[in-house]
Simulated scan of single mutants.
Amino acid sequence: MENDRLAIRPILTEPLFLAIPNERENWMTGQLRKLMDSVRPNAEKTPLALKTAEDVPFILLKEGYGFRRIVLDLCAEEGFQPKVTFKTSSIETAQSLVEHGMGVTVVPRMVMRQGSDRIVYVPLQSDPSRTLVFAYPETCYLSRAARAFMETAKKNQTSMYEEV
């Protein structure tokens, strides 16, 4: 986020994962099928190049969402434009579409469906992440609650994903 009038405080940085259906689908490339044969939903997974999803149906958030831009930039860095077959305003809907075999998507760790046996989350080779920030006008008064939130988030940032 770039805005000279805003103060930016990082709250949380989290990794991104490729979400793929746990069942083989006709649209899957050979590399994805091979991956499906070698992993279980909760198993440790070998990082995959995002480019593996170049020729498969891709589910993205609609235009105007910052996370959509992150995913498109990641794809561009890998040298491809995703074949977008569905657009949604909800990352939860995107994951439901993945679970039903409609394509793949990229999700941040915070919204991964823990314990789902219908979706597989695969780490990406480029080790991408997103950072959530607290942005506010520098000249604006910050309430005690806002300051406490930022302080708590700062303390929890390092330990949030240690257990996962």
Score class of each variant (00 low, 15 high):
P57H: 01
P82N: 07
T93W: 06
T46I: 13
E23Q: 13
V164G: 08
P123E: 01
S129P: 00
P15W: 13
A153Y: 01
S38K: 09
V84Y: 02
I119R: 02
L12E: 10
L12S: 08
A153F: 00
K87N: 07
E163L: 13
E54T: 04
V56F: 03
I70E: 11
T46H: 12
C140D: 06
M28Q: 03
V71L: 03
R109F: 15
M150T: 05
M150R: 06
A19K: 03
R113E: 15
C140L: 11
K155V: 09
S89C: 06
F80V: 02
T88I: 14
T93Q: 15
R24P: 05
L132C: 07
D127S: 08
K34A: 08
P10T: 04
P57K: 02
L74E: 01
Y141M: 10
C140W: 13
Y65Q: 07
T52W: 00
A135E: 11
E63T: 06
E23R: 12
I70F: 11
T158Y: 05
E138K: 10
R5A: 12
A145K: 12
P137V: 04
Y161L: 15
V120Q: 14
S38M: 04
K155P: 02
E14W: 05
E151T: 14
V84D: 04
A7D: 09
S96L: 08
S129A: 14
L97Y: 10
L124R: 01
E63I: 07
M110H: 15
K154Y: 04
R109W: 10
R109T: 09
I59G: 02
A53K: 04
I91L: 15
C140V: 11
T85R: 13
L6Y: 15
Y65N: 15
M1Y: 11
P128T: 08
V164T: 11
R130K: 15
L72M: 14
M1T: 10
P57A: 03
A145V: 08
D73F: 08
E63Y: 09
L124K: 00
V122G: 07
K154N: 04
A94P: 09
D117V: 11
M36D: 04
L16K: 00
V104F: 00
R147H: 02
V107E: 02
V122L: 11
A49R: 10
V164A: 10
F58H: 04
T13L: 05
L97Q: 03
L16A: 01
Y121I: 09
